[in-house]
Design a protein around this nucleic acid. Sequence first.
DNA 1: TTGACAAATGACCCAATAGTCATTATTATA
DNA 2: TATAATAATGACTATTGGGTCATTTGTCAA
Lengths: 277, 277
Amino acid sequence: MLKKQLIMERALELFAKQGFESTSVQQITEHCGISKGAFYLSFKSKDELIIALIDHFMMQITTEIDQIVRNTPNDEELLYKFYYAIYHSFHKQSDFAKVLIKEQSQTFNKDLILKMRYYDKLIENNILSMIERLYGEEVRQTKYDLMYCIKGFMNTYSQLFVFYNVPLDLKLLSESLVEKTNLLARHTTVPFISQELIEIVKQPMNAEVTKEQILEIVGQRIEEIETSIEKESLILLQGQLLEPTLPPAIVKGLLGNISNHPHCKWISYLLRRYYNF
Amino acid sequence: MLKKQLIMERALELFAKQGFESTSVQQITEHCGISKGAFYLSFKSKDELIIALIDHFMMQITTEIDQIVRNTPNDEELLYKFYYAIYHSFHKQSDFAKVLIKEQSQTFNKDLILKMRYYDKLIENNILSMIERLYGEEVRQTKYDLMYCIKGFMNTYSQLFVFYNVPLDLKLLSESLVEKTNLLARHTTVPFISQELIEIVKQPMNAEVTKEQILEIVGQRIEEIETSIEKESLILLQGQLLEPTLPPAIVKGLLGNISNHPHCKWISYLLRRYYNF
DNA sequence: TTGACAAATGACCCAATAGTCATTATTATA
DNA sequence: TATAATAATGACTATTGGGTCATTTGTCAA
């Protein structure tokens, strides 16, 4: 399990520099100081490695955004915190950000594309719910456009510090984008992206996580963490998934119990979506 | 010369579907109905092909934008025409747009990256001069931010019809983006991208076209086009490059002569930059 | 110390692919 | 028609890189 982490870290460095396709397994193993065979003990294939990397980091970013949106009671601060967290994440994990930008929508692997689409939609949903909370009725017609603009800001500005090693003032950046977002939200009158368009675009996105997959992850977590309230809650949630008997209030409570455990952030996010909380 | 075009067209189709790296020369030649050897009669390598493709289309798009910015006297229309032209181009050449997005900043070839940076900067300059003309003093502090936002709009919205085959209302799209751009230009007060930051980012961009390269292209064009005012003008401009004797007014006039000839758009654009017109 | 089990190795296999070149087909010229 | 020049072919080479597996090394309980 430690070997796996070593490989992921070292491979990420190479991928960021050279790209995924141009990095051979040979190079990775040399960079790790292990043999080629050892690589295949940890990962079934080179593809499995990149998927593991993307999963790892995207989970982190997605949950981070989700937590901010849910745990910031003050509307005034929300947008600022959102932008700050995004760029802070990208900055901290700039190697990963590089890989993400370089490899974005590369065709070489169907699974990977679906995966990326999946995370993309998750982030879109988070942005949308933030928009709705902040501006409500005011942006009913223009919310999808606003969401696209926010995504545009995220992408365009992140290239600045991903490709040039410039020392950036994240606070100023966030502040600047908050102003722009507010401007667009409050004064836009000509929407382009309609509900209907969004529906069309949504189509090919059917890789929703299934109950079975959730159960699998729950099982893993139960094994991983030591006896505690969190573990007990997980076991109860596992039972609930297999045979629903508990009322929603209790389920929600159990979810609350685990949502701050460092190893349970992702699973609690998935469960919250599953139960529509 | 015809074979070259055939290869470029057919290869583009494959690149758009599968990406550059994942398309073999074999596949390209099969798709063209020619032999592998024939491919290497037209292009020295596979890399030369992708570079030719990118040159071809980026020249087209860059000159198109440049022409619009220079030939639209009415400020009211300018932004609209700009967005419309961009998306019209992307739509018409959607295969190329796909390749561009997929391959953007892929590391496999240094030349290519420099090339892309070069065109990127050209487009940035065009956007900047458009902004300055439209908003002048008003955006002195925020023009670079505005430029980045416009680029963000371009990228983000273009993904919509590059990756989903959605029938799009380009007029509405342009109108919508015009409104957003105006909003940001007129009301933004917190700039993030300073002059200084732009300077830093500019650094690695030293692949400016040299006089020798310009001369080479002029030579090619002179060979290509039949005797006419345009050809004569080109020959005079060639002389001027080798030994400057004519006053600026005449040079500018000569440039005007060729700037509408379908084969001279790119060279006239380069010359205009060279002489700072 | 021994033997059994797990972890790690790297030579090897195979498929794919960029690029070459001797040969053949086609066209232009005299 | 004969000859020269040009265009086109595709078998072949050299190399790379993902993945396998027989063998070696390390570990630990008896």
